[in-house]
Design a binder for these strands. Structure first.
Lengths: 201, 201
DNA sequence: ATCGTGAAAAAATCGTTGAATATTTCACCA
DNA sequence: TGGTGAAATATTCAACGATTTTTTCACGAT
């Protein structure tokens, strides 16, 4: 065996490197993260499987309407599918500048989520979450994932597996598939770095 | 299929929950991360396989000398294998307080690494790295891992796959198995949250 | 032309099965 | 008690066929 445990099939690494900055790769990542097939996606889009395959590989190009449907389907802002990508002409495929992050969910609920990696590929998801003052996640949610977080600034209360904790700057956590919820009762936003594996988006 | 993609065998989740706060689990995690077997570890220790198995499960207890050997073998400070664990009597198994992190590597080289998760288990490693002013990693290193980082404070220069970048507060990066190195030419320490999958420790 | 389809070809995934390895259990020794 | 060694158990891994998924591409419609 080589170094450390292999990722999956071993050739995953190279396979990640995509052509240019197509939306295709993003769509594929989103689709994979929900574990749905080309066929299913094609159905929802009312398009053929072959065509969707081509879209994901950047050979064919989806209509704006298709993009809209896709964005809605996966719950990401339409802007996410758009150029945010390589907009920085000097941009490297490795780094994401503080001002150039792609937003993930919707802003409502007082939670702002931004992607810290250049794209959606990879075995985990690293996100910058900003919890606005007064915001809260009312009902606990449970995902079948491993999640970890680090408080960059502010203060956040979080309930994990039934235990409430008040996290201050510098505190961190990690849990496996426990139900959790949070609230920010402070006066300032709480900023967390949140890591989720495998990715959910 | 349940929610999202399963981790690996599916029962990984529960299997993580260990008894008390034994060093055993840590030793096992360290050993697994290097992909060596009980037999190999037993050899280095001059102990039997059965015994080492028992140590890892908290049934038998290693001597101080054994611990020393193990720590050296895995390149972690001896303190790591000691109590740092559940020292906080109120401590949850989910959260790690800013002041109660376990140190990882050695401090030399101007790099301070601290574990942000409660233990070494899981499919990724989340670390707080502090790069002291003037410190640098002279030679690029390459690991067969997926790595991502976020600059919490300070400024860090990092070379990834041959490209140098100056990262400021809020900048982030992600790469797959590229060779990298770094240097902090600033006057203040650079603090990064660094995520590595799979874990290397 | 360009956009998109449909179906054949290719590839990746999944469920077994069996051999080889790794780990746990436990009776017993120092 | 601390530890061994070997039998019992569990896990890993490769090989294989059967599906399922994805890609390719010739062709029809606009």
């Amino acid at each position: 065996m080589g170094i450390a445990r292999p990722q999956k099939s071993g050739k995953d690494f190279g396979a990640r490197r995509w052509q240019g900055g197509g939306v295709g790769a993003d769509i594929r990542a989103l689709r994979k993260s929900r574990a749905i097939t080309l066929g299913e996606l094609a159905d929802k889009l009312g398009r053929s499987v072959g065509f969707v395959s081509q879209i994901e590989r950047g050979i064919s190009h989806p209509s704006i309407d298709d993009l809209r449907t896709i964005a809605k389907l996966f719950g990401v802002p339409l802007s996410f599918l758009f150029g945010e990508h390589q907009r920085d002409p000097l941009g490297s495929r490795f780094v994401v500048r503080a001002g150039a992050r792609r937003q993930l969910g919707s802003t409502e609920g007082g939670l702002i989520e931004e992607l810290l990696s250049p794209d959606l590929s990879g075995s985990f998801e690293i996100i910058r979450s900003e919890f606005l003052p007064g915001s809260a996640l009312a009902q606990p949610v449970r995902r079948n994932t491993e999640e970890a977080g680090y408080v960059v600034s502010g203060k956040l209360e979080i309930e994990i597996g039934g235990e409430w904790h008040v996290l201050d700057k510098g505190d961190s956590f990690r849990f496996f598939g426990e139900p959790y919820r949070w609230r920010n009762r402070g006066k300032v936003p709480a900023v967390l770095i949140w890591v989720i594996a495998p990715p959910t988006y």
